[in-house]
Design a protein around this nucleic acid. Structure first.
Length: 464
DNA sequence: ACTGCCGGGCA
DNA sequence: TGCCCGGCAGT
């Protein structure tokens, strides 16, 4: 199962971080002391682990250098963690059902679950809007969760180095006295389905139906590639996935929950639909372009993702609908590891990347640095298309969804997001590469320039 | 800072 | 129309 391995002190220099990120495996860390954890690809049931969406071979990187320095950073991690936690919780349950106590690798798996689910259940994520910055306790409590739970139960491979005081404190969620309730631990033997705070219940079970306005219609959309089946019930969509895509027996009630990854819950604002968004149909539920393509099994999308049709969640719907034909807008996702855009973490906030699964540095590339943002009811996502800060870039799912962010998309985003130049763009002639009179003759021989050059016009002698 | 050149003013 | 130059944008 999951081999959680401490691989030594983390890389403090960018070069070291770079080297580390270019290796395989996945890991996480705190502050300057990053710890790597490796999930053995061969040992993990790929068909169950949501991490497969990061590359199928589970070679993905998570570096949480400063845990959740900002609200904006958290959902990525949390979402991923939540997916893992859900999966691991199932694994636990299966172990119990089989009458076995998790131990050894399984124990480490549970530890991983604790780490990840703790991430995912942070109160800030659950309710970031009510989270004024309070120094320190967030990460500390997080570490406490870990140390209290597993510092003594692991075989020395695992540790949290909390001694490093150089890690700057960052805004953290307010933790009430019962903060631990918001950090449900997956400890061996616990029944993950019992006494789970309601706020975290949705992690492990089907989403609790939330109070919605009457105008919000919840539908369930199949995310299997080229399948846009939309059904009104989760059971229906599960049955659809199970029978149509997973090839399982219709009559069998057996379900291991894998169907969850292949559909998403979408909210359709009936008011908006009737007020002029009639072009939006349940089969194309986002206003941001075509639905994301999730080629299974590499791209498993847990069901708790919700694509929100309510345009009020998108601050600039027109712009985003044109510029981000993916899941950038209107998607309220609890499993953002399927997000399509690299996310630039604000400077000073060392949440480094979730790797792209092939061992390359996440986000290394175009340097366009186009900032985008999208909002969910839980959190405002901010990111960058064409990341520019490799170490501080989260590049999630880009390998899995290469079509989501295309070059043309980036161009379009750039044109749409960046302020329009004062003069009309495109009218200006591209700068020629040929040497001009000024270069050839120099200022001293200005009289030898062509007339145009002398007049500061486009050179007529050395044209391109 | 340097370079190319657009847009506009002036005679 | 010829000449010149401010200023923008790319390198």
């Amino acid at each position: 199962m999951c081999h959680v391995k401490y691989r030594g002190k983390a890389q403090s220099s960018p070069q070291q971080q770079q080297r580390a990120q270019s290796s395989s495996g996945w890991g996480w860390g705190v502050g300057k002391h990053q710890h790597e954890s490796i999930i053995s690809p061969s040992a993990v049931s790929k068909s169950k682990c949501p991490l497969r969406s990061w590359g199928g071979n589970l070679e993905c990187w998570m570096f949480f250098s400063q845990l959740y320095p900002t609200n904006n950073d958290r959902p990525m991690c949390c979402a991923a963690a939540r997916g893992v936690g859900s999966w691991l919780s199932r694994s636990q349950q299966k172990l119990r059902e089989e009458g076995r106590k998790p131990s050894g690798h399984a124990d480490k798996e549970v530890m991983a679950a604790t780490v990840l689910t703790s991430l995912s259940t942070s109160p800030l994520v659950l309710n970031p809007s009510s989270a004024p910055p309070v120094p320190e306790p967030g990460s500390r409590a997080w570490k406490d969760v870990l140390s209290n739970s597993y510092s003594s139960s692991t075989s020395g491979n695992w540790s949290w180095d909390t001694s490093d005081q150089s890690v700057p404190s960052t805004p953290s969620p307010p933790l009430s006295n019962d903060a631990n309730k918001n950090f449900p631990l997956l400890t061996p033997g616990d029944d993950v389905n019992e006494d789970v705070p309601e706020s975290t219940h949705f992690m492990f079970e089907d989403p609790i139906p939330r109070k919605r306005k009457n105008s919000m219609k919840v539908m369930f959309k199949c995310l299997w590639k080229n399948c846009e089946k939309v059904l009104s019930t989760s059971s229906g969509i599960q049955r659809h996935v199970r029978t149509v895509h997973l090839g399982r027996n219709t009559d069998s009630d057996y379900s291991d929950g894998e169907e969850d990854f292949y559909y998403s819950e979408i909210e359709i604002n009936m008011d908006s639909l009737t007020e002029g968004l009639s072009s939006l149909t349940p089969t194309s539920p986002t206003t941001c372009g075509p639905p994301p393509v999730f080629p299974p099994p590499l791209t498993a999308v847990p069901h708790s993702e919700r694509i929100n049709m309510n345009s009020s969640h998108c601050p600039t719907p027109t712009l985003l609908s044109q510029s981000a034909p993916s899941t950038l807008c209107h998607i309220r996702t609890d499993h953002a590891y399927q997000a399509t855009a690299p996310v630039r973490i604000p400077l000073g906030h060392e949440l480094a990347g979730l790797g792209n699964g092939n061992g390359t540095r996440p986000g290394h590339g175009t340097g366009n640095g186009i900032s985008v943002s999208w909002q969910s009811p839980h959190v405002l996502f901010k990111g960058v298309l064409g990341s520019v800060i490799p170490v501080r870039t989260v590049s999630i799912g880009e390998k899995r969804q290469p079509a989501a962010i295309t070059h043309s998309t980036v161009i379009k985003n750039h044109a749409l997001i960046t302020p329009a130049p004062k003069s009309a763009p495109g009218t200006r002639k591209p700068r020629g590469e040929a040497k001009k009179c000024r270069k050839v003759y120099g200022m001293e021989k200005r009289d030898m320039w062509c007339t145009a050059c002398r007049w500061k016009k486009a050179c007529q002698r050395f044209t391109d």
